[in-house]
Amino acid sequence: MSRTILIVLSEFGYWGEELVGPLAAFDRQGYQSVIATPTGKRAHALPPSLDPGYVDPPLGRSVTTPEVAVEARRVDESNRLDDPLSLADWIPERPYNSADGYLRKVEAYYRELGRVADDIARYDALVIVGGSGPIVDLANNGRVHDLVLAFVRAGKPILAECYGIACLAFARDWEDRASILWGKHVTGHCKEYDYKDGTGFFGVDFNMGPPPYPLEYILRDATGPDGRYHGNVGKETSVIVDYPFVTARSTPDSYPAGEKLVEVLESGLRRYGW
């Protein structure tokens, strides 16, 4: 069965392995992968993610093998990432309450969202690739939130990696503001693996120092008392499936996360890793 996967990338840098890991699984299955970015700009890999000699400070070792570095560079320099879909052109932006003619504008917003719900019928799953870039233009992007909610309402699976998982925690219906992760089991970048210094972004000469938010704390709160965050500190990989969500902690989880999403689609996998 031919399937199509929508992959959202940050315009401020994605981690190479976190794209090529899922892509490898999708290509093997013969899936079509469609790339989207917030404003339609071409995405690029974060330079450290293409360097097998780069030592990850919290882990004290390289997290990119020479083989993955070659594949990530090949994909990053190919035409696969050219001409991405623009979320800004596709998904409406919710108007400010202070906008002139607010009621008419919000009615138009909901009409356009209905068309987005129809549009995603062509996609079988959504992937949000991680890295530090999503901190800037995906995590608190209302259009990304509406896209996530459309997939959730359609009962379609979503794979999110690393800091891309923040999009799931923040994607909430404006009526009740309830977390879509409430009662779910997820993984994500744990506090022990966060940088103390050096968080950077593609195309910006700016060292943020540590990440601006500890993703682990956000996920612990978002899942509530009946769900759970799984850091799996010390374990080489951490992938959790709690349908419709597939979450991957960080770089080494990218390949197994892609394989688990394929199992979700092809074999009906609904729970894994907890």
Rank of each mutant, 00 (worst) to 15 (best):
R143P: 10
G131V: 05
G131F: 05
V186K: 06
R228M: 04
F202T: 14
S132D: 10
T247A: 03
K235Y: 11
R249D: 11
T247H: 09
G133W: 00
P157Q: 08
N140I: 04
L181P: 05
Y229L: 02
A160L: 05
A166I: 04
Y123N: 10
I158H: 08
V136I: 02
C162N: 14
F170P: 02
E175S: 12
Y213S: 02
T223L: 02
L215Y: 05
P212Q: 07
A171K: 06
A178T: 10
L168Y: 07
G200Q: 13
I218N: 01
I180T: 08
R228W: 01
K196I: 13
W174R: 15
L215V: 12
C190P: 15
N140V: 08
P244Q: 09
G183R: 11
V136S: 00
V127Y: 04
A178M: 09
G183V: 09
E192W: 11
S132Y: 14
N141M: 04
F202I: 14
G131M: 10
S250M: 15
L149C: 06
S238N: 11
T247M: 02
A169T: 03
Y193H: 13
R249A: 14
F206I: 10
F245W: 15
N140Y: 09
I180H: 07
C162Q: 08
I180A: 05
Y217R: 15
G209Y: 11
D205P: 06
W182F: 14
K156N: 03
A125I: 04
E192A: 14
V129K: 05
N140D: 13
V246C: 00
I218K: 05
H145I: 05
L147V: 07
F202S: 11
G188S: 04
E161T: 11
I158P: 08
I135Q: 06
L149F: 08
P134E: 03
T223Q: 01
G133P: 04
D221R: 10
D173L: 11
N232S: 04
G227I: 01
A222V: 03
D205G: 09
L138H: 14
F202D: 12
V239K: 02
N207Y: 09
T247C: 08
N140C: 02
R220V: 10
Y123P: 11
H145D: 09
